[in-house]
Write a protein that binds this DNA or RNA. Structure first.
Lengths: 116, 116
DNA sequence: ACAAACCGTAAGTTGACACGAACGTTAGTA
DNA sequence: TACTAACGTTCGTGTCAACTTACGGTTTGT
């Protein structure tokens, strides 16, 4: 999960990941979509591969890359738990707030009723 | 989503986020949990705040911070869609592979049967 | 064996960022 | 008003990563 976060933090690597999301593409074809040099893309592909976000398959002189969704599993679990538990916390606080308001209202009634 | 990824890429910011996940804490108390100086933590808190991952509330001279799970919504959607569609793609490919195997088996039977 | 195609690697440069030291700001207190 | 506490901010420094250029390696075709 840690590696996936660092790999995804780079915008260009997210673009590369989008490219090989549905298609299997050779490194040269991927590099042709950007304005940076081919070695730069090659380095990005290595980071993505070491993070488990892409697979590499050799076909003759070419190397074919493809997105690997399983590499996002750890990050998915992290985000999902943080998201779910965070909303749960907000819900509990909202309920506690509501109870506090009701107590305040009850106290106000108790104060004003003797006067009424 | 973009900002959240860059903010979470830093390990220390993830630790800070864990600290204020359930508690609301002042900057000094957060800094006391680490071996870096308070200004460094203050800068991290600013990054987290600008990324929408924490809320800041002033109480006298102190500033209280707390995790803000809604800030993860964009990143959650990104990861979730990539994850779900990726697994769907793998499933479709597995089915296509199975059909190819069946065709190959049928062709083998058709070749061998005339000899039998 | 030789050349071409495809790709990764090594070294150097540059920009971004985390960090520490010093200073500034706001709020509470005598 | 002085004084202190709790933070934030600015500036200079070191480090890391993305990029380019140049080079080396591997596979395919002749």
């Amino acid at each position: 999960m840690n590696d996936a976060l660092a790999a995804l933090a780079e915008p260009r690597r997210r673009q590369i990941l989008e490219l090989v999301r549905w298609q299997e593409l050779p490194a040269g074809a991927i590099a042709a979509n950007f304005e940076v040099t081919r070695p730069a893309i090659s380095q990005h592909l290595r980071v993505l591969r070491e993070a488990g976000l892409v697979t590499e398959r050799r076909d003759g002189t070419r190397r074919l890359y493809r997105a690997r969704p399983e590499g996002l599993e750890g990050l998915r679990d992290f985000v999902e738990s943080f998201w779910a538990e965070g909303l749960e916390r907000l819900k509990l606080e909202a309920e506690a707030e509501e109870r506090a308001v009701r107590r305040a209202e009850a106290a106000t009634e108790a104060d004003s009723e003797p006067e009424a």
